[in-house]
């Protein structure tokens, strides 16, 4: 298969970027999108050019490192799939493919397609943990957790923090990410003690990072490779509003 690529090239955060056009030939239909970019980079290196920088790690769809806009859709056209697990058979031979980095003020471009996602880490640092000494691993079922609750927590915990929700949101909102990170702890018994502090501190950090607000349109959930649903955003709104009314979240003040 042959593709024409329009890729965003930007040497660093300070220098303005622009699109460059490339062609890759002899791409196998079972190659992943990132393997296709590897082929392009080998070609660029062989010709003495600068390879395209992009984030990747596990290439199994579980680490959350990869993340690029492919033809205007975060992680590309296939639902519930990271860019590394997207295969070229989902494109047509001869397609023009536009590749851009995530765009958000909170995600500055480091180089080409690589963006800085530390803002998401700082949201977790603000309260996405349980501050109790845990000791050694407890016996299974020593704390009873009903199965539906455990399932809900697991659904939220599936978030890999790739940032596709922010990238796809017209408001650059990080609500789905924050909702997942609050939700997976707030539904479990272990998370109850800091429940409202967590919601308030994490949302306040999210606001401070310069993300936009949520308009409930659902593009985040539609591109989420882990299919995290909008229910978690409703839950986050509830936890946050209740927390604020209770005066929670002041421990960092």
């Amino acid at each position: 298969m042959k593709f024409k690529l329009r890729i965003w090239r930007q040497p660093n955060t300070l220098i303005k970027g622009r699109f460059e056009e490339y062609e890759v030939d002899d791409v196998g239909p079972d190659e992943s999108f990132l393997e296709m970019l590897d082929m392009l980079n080998e070609q660029l290196i062989a010709n003495g050019g600068e390879p395209v920088a992009f984030d990747h790690d596990c290439r199994e769809g579980i680490c959350g490192m990869c993340g690029i806009m492919i033809n205007g859709v975060a992680h590309g056209p296939k639902a519930a799939t990271t860019a590394c697990q997207l295969h070229m058979r989902h494109f047509k031979d001869g397609d023009v493919i536009v590749v851009e980095p995530w765009r958000a003020k909170a995600f500055p471009v480091i180089k080409d397609l690589v963006v800085e996602r530390a803002a998401l880490d700082r949201i977790i640092q603000a309260g996405g943990y349980i501050s109790a000494s845990t000791g050694s691993a407890p016996d299974a079922n020593s704390i009873p957790v009903p199965k539906p609750v455990a399932d809900t927590a697991m659904d939220a915990a599936a978030c890999i923090g790739c940032g596709a929700c922010v990238a796809a949101c017209p408001n650059s909102s990080a609500m789905l990410f924050t909702a997942a990170k609050v939700g997976h702890l707030n539904v479990l018994p272990q998370g109850q003690a800091e429940r409202f502090d967590r919601a308030v501190l994490m949302v306040d950090e999210m606001e401070a990072e310069g993300f936009g607000g949520c308009t409930n349109i659902g593009e985040c959930a539609a591109v989420c490779p882990k299919e995290i649903g909008l229910d978690f955003i409703a839950m986050l709104n509830r936890e946050y509003l209740r927390g604020k009314l209770k005066g929670a979240g002041s421990r960092n003040a």
């Binding site: 329009r6 965003w8 699109f19 806009m69 033809n71 205007g72 859709v73 536009v98 851009e100 765009r103 958000a104 003020k105 909170a106 796809a168 017209p170 408001n171 650059s172 909102s173 310069g210 993300f211 936009g212 607000g213 308009t215 349109i217 659902g218 593009e219 539609a222 591109v223």
Partner: peptide
Amino acid sequence: QQARQARPQNYATRRVVQAN
């Protein structure tokens, strides 16, 4: 205004996936 500020540079190509 918050949303505008949150994305200073827009996408060259953007496709709506499901939003009504």
